[in-house]
Write a protein that binds this DNA or RNA. Structure first.
Length: 501
RNA sequence: GGUCAUGUGGCCGAGCGGUGAGGCACAGGUCUGCAAAACCUUAUACGGCGGUUCAAAUCCGUCCAUGACCUCCA
C-alpha cells in the first residue's frame, strides 16, 4: 500500500508521488521570531518532523526547508504600551537583530528539546530581501501588482480574472470565491491605497518609527507577509515542489497569496501536496495570541504558568501530539497531559526492556496465534502511517504490544511463544518507529555511570537485607530513594529495577 | 453575515456501513513480607429528531451546540 496524504488543495487523500523520486522537496512555514514559541506552535513542528522522518524511513531523499520569519512588523511582546511612552527606551532595548536572535535561539532550544531533526535549510526572510524584491519586480512587470505611496500591492482581481481561465482562480486552496469576499473584510490601515480590498501587500513602505527597513526600488520599507515563502521556496525547492505544510490557520490568506504570487512568477502552482495540521485548543478555543490563552514552551517545561499543575517534559508533549491525528484539533488539559506522561513512560519502559532483554524467541513459535497477532500488529505500523500519517493508530498497536512485552518480562508468557523472526521484527520495527520515526527518547537525561553504580550498590544491599528478612533496612532504602525521586520496583524472580520520577 | 470543520464513555482521543482502537482515571482479581510496577477481567459511548439499509457512531435530511478562517496569528 503506497503512501497516501490528504491534500488540502483537492480535499482528498491522494497517493503520494514525488515529482523526481527519490527526491522530495518539502517546505514548512516556520516561526515568526518576534516572540516566544508556545504550545500551539509546537504542533506543526512536531507534526512535520514526524512526516519528514517517515519520508526518510521510506527511503526518500528529502530536502526539508523551514523558514524563519525575522522581518516585518515587530514589537517586542508585552512591551507595546511602553514603546509608545518612550521611543528612546525602545531604541535602547531593541536592536532588531538582537531581538530576532534571542527568539531564534530560544526556538532552536525548544526544537532540540522536542528532538526535532534540523531542517535541511532554514532560510531567513532578512537573508532573502533581494530575492523578494526581484520577485516583486517580476510581478509588477507582468502587470499583477502596482505601486502606491511606496508600497506595492498584488492585484488580486486581475489575477483572478486571468487565471480563472486557466483553472487557477484566486481561492483555489481555501475554496473562497473572490466575489463573496469583497464586503466581508475588516478594516485595516491604508486600505485606501489599495485598488481593491482583497489586494494584499507585497512591499510595505516603512513609517519613520519602524524598526526594520530596507532600501528598495519603491523606497525604504519591508516585505509583505507572504512574499518570503514564495521567494525562498522557489529558490531552494524550485518552481514546483512536492509538499507544502503549515498550520490550518495559514490556508487563508497566507498560502492562498503564496500560490498567487508563485503562479504569476513561475506559471505553475508551487506545491503538489498541501498538508495542514489542525490547532491545539485549550478549553475548546484555539491557543493563540489573539485569545490571550497561550502557554509558552518555557512555561510548559518548567510548570510556571497558572494553568499548569506541574511541569511537562518535552517528550510528554511530543507523545501527546502523536496520540491524535494531525488534522484534528487537540484539546489541552492537565489531565490529558498527565495521562500522556504515564502512557509515554509505560511505552518507553516496555520498549527499553525489550531492547535490553536479550530474548530471542524459538525456532518455531510456541503460540502460533500470538505470534501471528504480534506480526500483524507490527506490520500495520506502515499501513497506518501510509494512510495519511495515522500516528494515533500506530500508538494503539504499540500498546497492545506493550502488554505482550510486559507479559514476557513477568514470565506470564514464555519468550519461546514467539518465533525468532517475530522477535527480531518486533525489535527492529519498534526501534524504527519509537525512536527514528516518532522521535521519542527517554525522559530521563543521560546519566553518568556513577549514579548507576551507586544505585546498583543500594539495590544489592537491599537484596541482602530482604534475604535476611530485615525489612526495616530494605524499606528504608526504598523509601528514602523514593523521596529522592528514584522508584525501586521488585520484579519476579528477585530482580530489581528503578525508574526516575 | 460568508466559507469550512467538528460533536464518541469520568477525561484525552482513533474509527466513518457489519467481532465495543488505544491511553489515563475507576472497580475487581493475580503476583508480593509490604508497597509500587506489571498482568488479567469488567463497566460506562457515539449531540437531538427523522430517513435509507438485512445492518448506521459511520450514509442522507433536519435541528441544536461548539470551533476555525474572512488579509497580525502555527
Amino acid at each position: 500500500m503506497p503512501l497516501k496524504v490528504y491534500n488540502s488543495l483537492t480535499r482528498e487523500k491522494e497517493t503520494f508521488t514525488p515529482i523526481n523520486a527519490p527526491y522530495v522537496g518539502m517546505y514548512v512555514c516556520g516561526p515568526t521570531v518576534s516572540g516566544e514559541s508556545h504550545l500551539g506552535h509546537a504542533r506543526p513542528f512536531i507534526t512535520f518532523d514526524v512526516i519528514y522522518r517517515y519520508l526518510l524511513y521510506l527511503g526518500y531523499k528529502v530536502r526539508y526547508v523551514r523558514n524563519i520569519t525575522d522581518a516585518g512588523h515587530f514589537e517586542e511582546e508585552g512591551r507595546e504600551a511602553e514603546d509608545k511612552i518612550s521611543k528612546k527606551a525602545v531604541l535602547e532595548k531593541l536592536e532588531p537583530m538582537e531581538l530576532v536572535q534571542k527568539y531564534t535561539n530560544l526556538y532552536h532550544w525548544a526544537m532540540r528539546r522536542f528532538n526535532n531533526l534540523n531542517p535541511s535549510i532554514e532560510p531567513t526572510a532578512t537573508g532573502h530581501i533581494i530575492e523578494q524584491i526581484e520577485m516583486i519586480k517580476k510581478i509588477i512587470a507582468d502587470g499583477y501588482a502596482y505601486e502606491a505611496n511606496g508600497s506595492v500591492y498584488f492585484d488580486v482581481e486581475k489575477y483572478n480574472t486571468d487565471f480563472s481561465k486557466k483553472g487557477q482562480p484566486y481561492g483555489i486552496l481555501s475554496g473562497r470565491i473572490l466575489e463573496d469576499q469583497l464586503d466581508t473584510t475588516r478594516e485595516l490601515d491604508n486600505q485606501d491605497e489599495k485598488r481593491n480590498k482583497s489586494d494584499f501587500a507585497l512591499w510595505k513602505h516603512a513609517p519613520a518609527e519602524h524598526i526594520m527597513r530596507w532600501q528598495s526600488p519603491w523606497g525604504e520599507g519591508f516585505p509583505g507577509w507572504h512574499i518570503e515563502c514564495s521567494a525562498m521556496s522557489t529558490k531552494y525547492l524550485g518552481e514546483e515542489f512536492d509538499i507544502h505544510g503549515g498550520g490550518m490557520d495559514l490556508v487563508f490568506p497566507h498560502h492562498e497569496c503564496e500560490i498567487a504570487q508563485s503562479t504569476v512568477c513561475n506559471h505553475k502552482t508551487p506545491a503538489r501536496y498541501w498538508l495542514h495540521n489542525n490547532m491545539i485548543t485549550i478549553n475548546g478555543k484555539k491557543m493563540g495570541k489573539s485569545y490571550n490563552n497561550v502557554i509558552r514552551l518555557t512555561e510548559l517545561f518548567s510548570g510556571s504558568h497558572p494553568a499548569l499543575t506541574q511541569a511537562y517534559h518535552p517528550m510528554t508533549i511530543r507523545f501527546f501530539i502523536l496520540q491524535s491525528h494531525y488534522r484534528g484539533t487537540l484539546d489541552f488539559s492537565n489531565e490529558a497531559l498527565q495521562a500522556a506522561e504515564k502512557a509515554m513512560k509505560r511505552l518507553w519502559e516496555a520498549y527499553n526492556w525489550l531492547q535490553q532483554s536479550g530474548i530471542c524467541g524459538a525456532d518455531t513459535a510456541g503460540d502460533v496465534a500470538l505470534d501471528e497477532k504480534v506480526k500483524k500488529l507490527v506490520d500495520e505500523f506502515d499501513e497506518f502511517m501510509n494512510d495519511d500519517f495515522n500516528t494515533a493508530k500506530v500508538l494503539a498497536n504499540m500498546f497492545e504490544l506493550v502488554s505482550v512485552i510486559n507479559s514476557i518480562k513477568d514470565k506470564h508468557i514464555s519468550a519461546e511463544s514467539l518465533s525468532t523472526t517475530t522477535v527480531a521484527l518486533l525489535q527492529t520495527q519498534l526501534k524504527a518507529y519509537v525512536e527514528d520515526i516518532f522521535g521519542l527518547q527517554s525522559e530521563r537525561s543521560a546519566d553518568d555511570g556513577k549514579l548507576e553504580g551507586v544505585l546498583q550498590l543500594l539495590i544489592d544491599i537491599r537484596k541482602e537485607a530482604k534475604t535476611r528478612k530485615d525489612f526495616v533496612t530494605s524499606d528504608k532504602i526504598r523509601n528514602e530513594l523514593a523521596a529522592l525521586g528514584v522508584q525501586l520496583k521488585d520484579e519476579k524472580g528477585g530482580g530489581m529495577s528503578y525508574t526516575f520520577s
